[in-house]
Design a protein around this nucleic acid. Structure first.
Length: 837
RNA sequence: GCGGACGUGGCGGAAUGGUAGACGCCGGGGACUUAAAAUCCCCUGAGCUUUGCUCGUGCGGGUUCGAGUCCCGCCGUCCGUACCA
């Protein structure tokens, strides 16, 4: 073996060998137990960034480990290839989105290959290709046929300069993020998916996802936002009815006013004849929508002069237009109970409306005044007619029952979740497979006409949707009546593309989206790994899509991801200087970093070292994985990704850290080089250390606690280095190589050649001798009154009395007791003796 | 405001209620070398009257023979979310 490990040569060599032998191709017909390991597929932005490296390294370690444990592993990779950046590139650089995207894919694929991931490239897919999105169109039509797709007029953010619809995130301070133009609200006919029909199922399903982070489940739960309450009608003094929704029907006797949203029909009606009301409504719309704005926003109201008749007392409550009532939730109107809702309390205080107590800790406290704020807690009903004395829960049921019996209200379950609007007025997405005909209406594209393929000859030199102004593409004949008709020019939200790609990985038939039998074999994904930023949208949509397909009988599986892991970000400190009043940032490569300070290479002047934050282009605190691989090799960067920080937390990148990883790779190489098949002699302690490490590393990998596995591997390496030559030592080196292999596959493969035949990629995880996992000697801590005074070595399993005797025999212990009376001795077998004196 | 996570050396972090700081990084000292790189060895929480002792896991209480870990109350940081009736 050569003196130094040369990653530049070894990495590409072994990558080629794995490719040629198709080592990581998943066999559908395999009789082995299966494991589907999946990382969230990347958007082909152009370059792999370090966050991808961390994500895919974790998945790769798990996939390679599972393979060594005898599983048939499916570990695929693909491209979430539709989306706006491609269109932006088209507009800015005059390139075609398709060409730009496919070039990026080629580059990024080469980058991933240089990192040595054990991927089944035969299943690679890109969502922008007709052989993917054509099947998506078919699934969309299936859902349409099942009544899960519909069209509805809906308000959108319209950018009048770019002539396009903007997502909420693209509207900044009321202006389009690209054009800077004031965004208008427009009503457009949009396609929707009925995710709300599955709201309850999606919520209930969370309960079974016990291998998902609590945090993600909570976020989805809040997003779905289920609440139970009473929807009921007030008769208004103008002859109309007003529908309101409340989760606190028990407080109905405490209602002292009624409020409607500024865009509620009642408010709009008043504005027709009352210009003060119209002015008020306009004023409400001016308020900002940022968190800070809402936090500080004052409660504003306008008294319409209309009265609402209370269903029990018959009293007339004033009806206000109020800025804090939302049209989008419930009915857009509320009964206001100032005593038991803080918002209503604030409003009533401001406008001098009565505040009544209808819930109290006990009946005796019925008249207790409020201490400056509403009381939303539990208690018994007071001042509340027929529900007096009932607990809150009981009263809710009683009022609801009365409302239903008398016909003025009904129990209702309300969700925050809205149906999923999937229409996008863009080119680079999956065409929605419908045709608009003046005679027949909206007609699905016949199955045998799929896929509806995007035209290539599109023009981005003018704003707007290129599909809409394409000279020929949208002009087709109606499939039903044959008359001239128009294609739908909207494309699907890219979240649709990522809602089923994991199903397509399991099988890729040409004539249908997937083979249900293959899905039954591979799904659910055993371990899904990705960023927390997808906690709600992607993960909720994918769950919905899977359930919807199960609902219409296409597949059996209902939850796509059995276990979810959300990894932390890779961070780096920033380097900057204040120049002319603004911060100028420098990349790590432009800076020389010493222990305490950093200087700019260009001029030798100092730069300020900023906080350790997520890598971002604007702060220039990025490192390019390719450069790291070129300098240190794939194994070193993979090792760095796994070291130190727990995988769910942020990982601070540092030059010193990657250098240390590079050194460890070489240290391993020297150690592997000391493997001596002819060595003889037994080293029991090293045998024990070896098997303990093998077992512990296995546990750590399965728990995704890579940082702990790394620490144990360092310990074993040190133990081997210190051990004298023996057969045990060679056995330990060999075991070390095998347990390092999932993390650093290239050096493992290279060194394996001197130890055994075949490939590490096809080797088995080392067996352990259970007898070696238990120690025969233990170190006992001896405490006096809970403080450590001595440690003694004893045979494992020594009886309590003997341990006590050993502890009391210690000189240090006796000195510490100092002749005091021993009141009690606590013995924890094999661990500790505590003498209470 | 609400929900969640977290708070341990100079840094990243270990620690089934049982020897706090494993392991790595940084730093210091030494060996080898003409020199450097590489490598190897040792030290590295603070303090003290240094065979050893005291203090020490954000702060204040509590439970326990024993608390980083459990309970109560604070403080702080980060993330998510929001006038959801």
């Amino acid at each position: 073996m050569s003196e130094r490990f040369d990653p530049a040569r070894a990495d590409s060599h072994w990558q080629q060998v794995w490719d040629e032998k198709q080592c990581f191709r998943a066999d559908d017909a395999s009789g082995k137990p299966r494991s589907f390991v999946l990382e969230m597929f990347p958007y082909p932005s152009g370059r792999i960034h370090i966050g991808h490296v961390r994500n895919y390294t974790m998945g790769d370690v798990l996939a390679r480990y599972k393979r060594m444990r005898g599983f048939e592993v499916l570990h695929p990779m693909g491209w979430d290839a539709f989306g706006m950046p491609a269109e932006n590139a088209a507009m800015e650089k005059g390139v075609h989105p398709g060409g730009w995207t496919r070039e990026n894919i080629a580059n990024m694929k080469a980058q991933l290959k240089r990192l040595g991931f054990a991927l089944d490239w035969s299943r690679e897919l890109a969502t922008c290709e007709p052989d993917y999105y054509g099947h998506e169109q078919a699934l969309f039509l299936d859902l349409y046929a099942a009544g899960l797709v519909y069209r509805k007029e809906s308000a959108v953010n319209w950018d009048p300069v770019d002539m396009t619809v903007l997502a909420n995130e693209q509207v900044i301070d009321g202006r389009g993020w690209r054009s800077g133009a004031l965004v208008e609200k427009r009503k457009l006919s949009q396609w929707f998916l009925k995710i709300t029909q599955f709201a309850d199922e999606l919520l209930e399903g969370l309960g079974a996802l016990d291998k998902w982070p609590e945090k993600v489940r909570t976020m989805q739960e809040n997003w779905i936002g289920k609440s139970r309450g009473l929807q009921f009608r007030f008769s208004l003094s103008n002859g109309d009815d007003l529908e309101v929704y409340t989760t606190r029907p028990d407080t109905i006797f405490g209602a002292t006013f009624v409020a409607v949203a500024p865009d509620h029909p009642v408010a709009q009606g008043v504005a027709m004849y009352n210009c003060d009301a119209a002015k008020f409504i306009d004023r409400c719309k001016q308020g900002g929508t940022t968190a800070a704005d809402i936090e500080t926003a004052e409660k504003l109201g306008f008294d319409t002069g209309i009265g609402a008749k209370h269903p029990f007392t018959g009293k007339h409550l004033p009806v206000y237009i109020a800025n804090f009532v939302l049209m989008e939730y419930g009915t857009g109107a509320i009964m206001a109970v100032p005593g038991h809702d803080q918002r209503d309390f604030d409003f009533a205080t401001k406008y001098g409306l009565p505040i009544l107590r209808v819930v109290a800790a006990s009946a005796e406290e019925a008249d207790r005044p409020f201490a400056g704020e509403a009381e939303a807690g539990d208690g018994v009903c007071v001042n509340s007619g027929f529900i007096d004395g009932m607990r809150v829960a009981e009263a809710k049921a009683a009022v609801t029952a009365r409302g239903e019996a008398e016909g003025w209200g009904e129990a209702r379950t309300q969700y925050r979740l809205r149906d999923w609007g999937v229409s996008r007025q863009r080119y680079w997405g999956t065409p929605i497979p419908f045709i608009h005909c003046d005679s027949c209406g909206v007609v699905p594209v016949p199955r045998d006409h799929l896929p509806v393929v995007l035209p290539d000859d599109v023009d981005f030199s003018v704003p707007g949707n290129p599909l809409d102004r394409h000279p020929t593409w949208k002009h087709v004949d109606c499939p039903d009546c044959g008359k001239a008709a128009r294609r739908e020019t909207d494309t699907l939200d890219t979240f649709v593309d990522s809602s089923w790609y994991f199903l397509r990985f399991a099988s890729q038939p040409g004539d249908r989206p997937f083979d249900p039998a293959a899905i039954a074999k591979w799904l659910p994904v055993e371990q899904y790994i990705g960023g927390i930023e997808h906690a709600i949208l992607h993960l909720l949509y994918a769950r919905f899509w899977t359930r919807a397909l199960a609902h219409i009988g296409l597949i059996e599986v209902k939850e796509p991801f059995a276990s979810l892991f959300t990894q932390g970000m890779v961070t780096h400190e920033t380097y900057s200087r204040s120049e002319g009043g603004r911060e100028v940032y420098f990349s790590p490569g432009e800076v020389t970093r010493s222990a305490e300070a950093a200087v700019l290479k260009a001029d030798g002047g100092p730069v300020e070292i900023g906080r350790v934050i997520k890598m971002s282009k604007s702060k220039k605190n990025v490192v390019d994985p390719d450069e790291i691989v070129a300098t240190y090799g794939a194994d070193a960067i993979r090792w760095f990704m796994l070291s130190d920080s727990p995988p769910e937390r942020d990982l601070p990148w540092s030059e010193a850290g990657i250098e240390g990883c590079g050194r460890f790779v070489q240290r391993l190489w020297r150690l592997f080089g000391q493997f001596d098949a002819a060595a003889t002699g037994e080293d029991k302690a090293l045998d024990r250390k070896r098997d303990q490490t093998v077992a512990a590393v296995a546990d750590d990998i399965e728990a995704l606690s890579f940082n702990k596995a790394v620490a144990r591997i360092y310990e074993l390496a040190t133990a081997i280095e210190k051990a004298p030559l023996s057969a045990s030592r060679s056995a330990a080196i060999r075991a070390l190589l095998l347990i390092v292999a999932p993390m650093m596959p290239h050096i493992a493969e290279e060194a394996w050649q001197a130890m055994a035949s075949g490939l590490v990629a096809e080797a088995q995880w080392p067996q352990v001798d259970p007898a070696l996992l238990v120690e025969d000697e233990v170190t006992i801590a001896v405490q006096v009154k809970g403080k450590l005074r001595d440690t003694i070595t004893a045979a494992k399993g020594l009886p309590e009395e003997e341990l006590k005797a050993l502890a009391l025999a210690s000189e240090k212990v006796q000195r510490s007791i100092d002749g005091a009376e021993i009141r009690k001795i606590i013995v924890v077998p094999d661990r500790l003796v505590n003498i209470v004196a």
